[in-house]
Design a protein around this nucleic acid. Structure first.
Lengths: 149, 149
DNA sequence: ACAATATAGTTTGTAAAACAAACTAAGTCA
DNA sequence: TGACTTAGTTTGTTTTACAAACTATATTGT
């Protein structure tokens, strides 16, 4: 992924940097998840349910998946006792999905672990650089309003 | 994924920033891949083969997958005419996997598209900020020598 | 040289993840 | 009420991933 003749390997283009960085982060997420038997998508599911009780359809939008994929995803998480389907009070067709206390515990432990491992990954940066990076990330994320609300 | 009482939503922690940024990048990679019928893992496979002809086992290490997963991955790419297995000259058990011209074309088009879309994602940053970001990414990637050589 | 061992890759069996199309049940609207 | 829409599931397929068992070839020690 380095095609730009103006840059050598040790001086990554911003595109290459972002791509490789994303793989590094995803690798950490995958590893932490795996320690608790969770895939990245299950991790994301729990992460979303931390502060929301979305319908299946809303989950599909959040995760950018087809609604038919959500059925299985929630099924498996429910089977493991991590989430629950609650019949929607207004619409008997729909469910609101919520995290159980077991699920909440798991995501708590998991995100602490992610926190540790990601902090370790950026420990080579100075405090200034870290907050610079956080600000830059926020700026990018803010402008590319992925709107998965 | 925001648990730190010292930060509000618009002022992401570095951990949250990195995680969300990684999902943004992966989403772009997934979308671009999908436009050409490629999954992220197939994209990575072609990306690796751009400047290498690794054995199946080396591919497994690069991609951090079990060797048995590589068989199917390469099978499917080979079926689509994107890569080839070449019997290793020194070891008749082994193969060196190489990208075909069709595969090379596809990865070329794909990475140009990734380039475009990622550039668009960072267009809110100034030139200075972009090179800062590239430098920070490189620094993180450099210290966490993932060693998948 | 050759038996024991190691290595490269595939096969087999299983499960998760994802999609699309068809379907069911419940809501809405004219 | 009948037509239509919406929420979610089912069905069937494909890809991805793993682990254990297996095959074929290399390597090593004696």
């Amino acid at each position: 992924m380095n095609n730009n003749p103006l840059q050598n390997q040790n001086d990554l283009s911003i595109v290459d940097g972002l791509v490789q960085l994303s793989f590094l982060v995803q690798e950490i997420l995958g590893r932490v998840g795996a320690e608790h038997g969770l895939s990245i998508i299950q991790l994301r599911l729990l992460g979303i349910l931390r502060d929301r009780e979305p319908s299946m359809l809303q989950l599909a939008k959040h995760l950018n998946l087809d609604k038919s994929s959500i059925t299985g995803l929630v099924d498996r998480a429910e089977r493991r006792g991590l989430v629950e389907r609650n019949v929607s009070p207004n619409d008997r067709r729909g469910y609101n999905v919520s995290v159980t206390s077991a699920g909440r515990e798991l995501i708590q432990i998991g995100s602490e672990e992610v926190e540790r491992q990601l902090s370790a990954a950026v420990e080579g940066l100075s405090e200034t650089e870290r907050s610079q990076l956080a600000a830059l990330a926020a700026k990018i994320l803010g402008s590319s309003v992925s709107s998965n609300e």
